[in-house]
Write a protein that binds this DNA or RNA. Sequence first.
DNA 1: CAACGACGTGGGAGCGCTCCCATCCGGGAC
DNA 2: GTCCCGGATGGGAGCGCTCCCACGTCGTTG
Lengths: 340, 340
Amino acid sequence: MSGRQSGRPTLEQVAARAGVGRGTVSRVINGSPRVSEQTRTAVARAVAELGYVPNQAARALAGSRTDAIALVIPEAEARLFAEPYFLDLIRGVSAELAEADKQLLLTLVRSEQERQRFEQYLAAQRVDGVLLASVHGDDPLPDRIRELGLPVVMNGRRAEAEPVPYVDSDNIGAGRAAVAHLVGRGRGRIATVTGPLDMYVARARLGGYRAGLAEAGLSPDEALVSAGDFTEEGGRRAMRLLLDRSPDLDAVFAASDVMAAGARAALREAGRRVPDDVALVGVDDSPVARLMDPPLTSVRQPIEEMGRTMARMLLQEIAEAPQEPRRHVLPTELIVRESC
Amino acid sequence: MSGRQSGRPTLEQVAARAGVGRGTVSRVINGSPRVSEQTRTAVARAVAELGYVPNQAARALAGSRTDAIALVIPEAEARLFAEPYFLDLIRGVSAELAEADKQLLLTLVRSEQERQRFEQYLAAQRVDGVLLASVHGDDPLPDRIRELGLPVVMNGRRAEAEPVPYVDSDNIGAGRAAVAHLVGRGRGRIATVTGPLDMYVARARLGGYRAGLAEAGLSPDEALVSAGDFTEEGGRRAMRLLLDRSPDLDAVFAASDVMAAGARAALREAGRRVPDDVALVGVDDSPVARLMDPPLTSVRQPIEEMGRTMARMLLQEIAEAPQEPRRHVLPTELIVRESC
DNA sequence: CAACGACGTGGGAGCGCTCCCATCCGGGAC
DNA sequence: GTCCCGGATGGGAGCGCTCCCACGTCGTTG
């Protein structure tokens, strides 16, 4: 209730009130150990009395660090995965950053022009590091950012071997688990609707599918593989193609829930019952899976946890104290419902 | 390709290169008209040659404006509306801000403690203004922020009469449109599953439902009104209750798609066919609506447009040049599908 | 008992920009 | 020719902080 007369208080004013020097207050604020207990309390009281809050701009200017990190999401993908994927990711990142008292700058990139503008930001020293979601197979951005000297962590990777630090989910394991489950239910003609194969995530899930077949002693059959594009319509088309080519299939592993929904519609059109005639498994465990009829068995990714891990890794890179490895592959989990 | 030797270039260096003073370069950068054409070009060339990008922190410190705005989303709601609602909103906000070259700081608030921390940020002068999504009926935050002297714009409102600038969708119109459609299809016993009535949005949709009945000359019946909580489970419970109380109902207006999905499940359990026995309408036009069986008729809100409008309003408030009114109610639109 | 670290502290020197005032220049009015 | 005015320009004075060096003031060592 005091000392509020002229704008926000500054370090200087706190120092005067506590009867110490500017440097000392700064030390207390930043938790330096080189301050006596007595002084510390005196300063803390002055801070409380004046309601002092450090000016972020001044801090950033003097200390050349912003306490903010950027999360970049390509707009096209945000639309594609309309699912809560990105929200979950954001939630995880946000939670971890909040604990570290860092700001989250969200950047939706929707055009090449905006991507360039974003590189400008980086150059303007607005953030201490960058989180990249959903990187394309040939995206040069991660490397560009590193050239600028900024720490980066990606969600997913561009290829099996990825030089830039990343957090991915075990997409191969996801495919294997799905196939194993279907095999366990007695299915022997298991088809798959893949994502676009220029994305590593799609290739990995397909690889898992193949590995699953091999482990079950089933021989691969390219007629049972059809490429979708992670959209519902794409799933529908791919499913029609599969039914056409291999009418005897008795199960389908769709590389995403949305495609599974499309496949389900195509199955209905074709008069196939789920799960009686054809069992169905998706990936993502999105709300859509729960609401489908019948509810969809799906492989869950720990999306929020990926977000948290990314943020944690980035903070360590920024602190130049990477304690964890620079690559993380988090486990997936099969959620069994009535679709198989 | 030049002058890259010592960190990023500063204003001073650009000035030296262009053979002018610091002030002049600043004027050019900021588009001041008081610069001769000739000087302007010379400076522009120096900027390009050195790859100069203004340091944001220095700008903020000297100019006391940050070119960043905060978007605050209560975590609980983000979970509730798991739908793409917030992503769409973010998309709109982001698009508008990108055009104005402003940064978007996303803040997910998940506890009272974090809310207080957020107020600290504001005091730390990190942002020029605040966008508030999904405000509770009795949320004091909007007023608190205004007390701090920061411009605010909310998404939705706390009550019919709302002092703080806001952008809302026409929820009353949504209810009326839904009912009118059902009446047009020959339904006469139209029930509704509402949202939690301590939220204005829920009350408004209920109000629209009632207005719709009145306009059709149907008499209201409280046995046809049941409160949900915007969750699937809540929708299911409310629907069961309605079937119990009014077995003769022939249509339901659910105040959200998610609740409609719950209601649909309850109808299935009860052996009622949709739309033959009971017609169903939701609100949001979310992906869930499209994927339901049968696909759900739903009232679409212009979410992304709301985001854009909010951002535009806020920018005007910041510039102290509000050209638009401080309240916006955007129209909704009925998307007809097979559920009625 | 002098010399010497170690610790706690004060405050100068910037960080890179914006704001603003003083200065300069040229052309028109008298 | 002199005076005046307005537009263009240079650069000082901060903005509020961090960094770091210098300065006591002790307790300890030889």
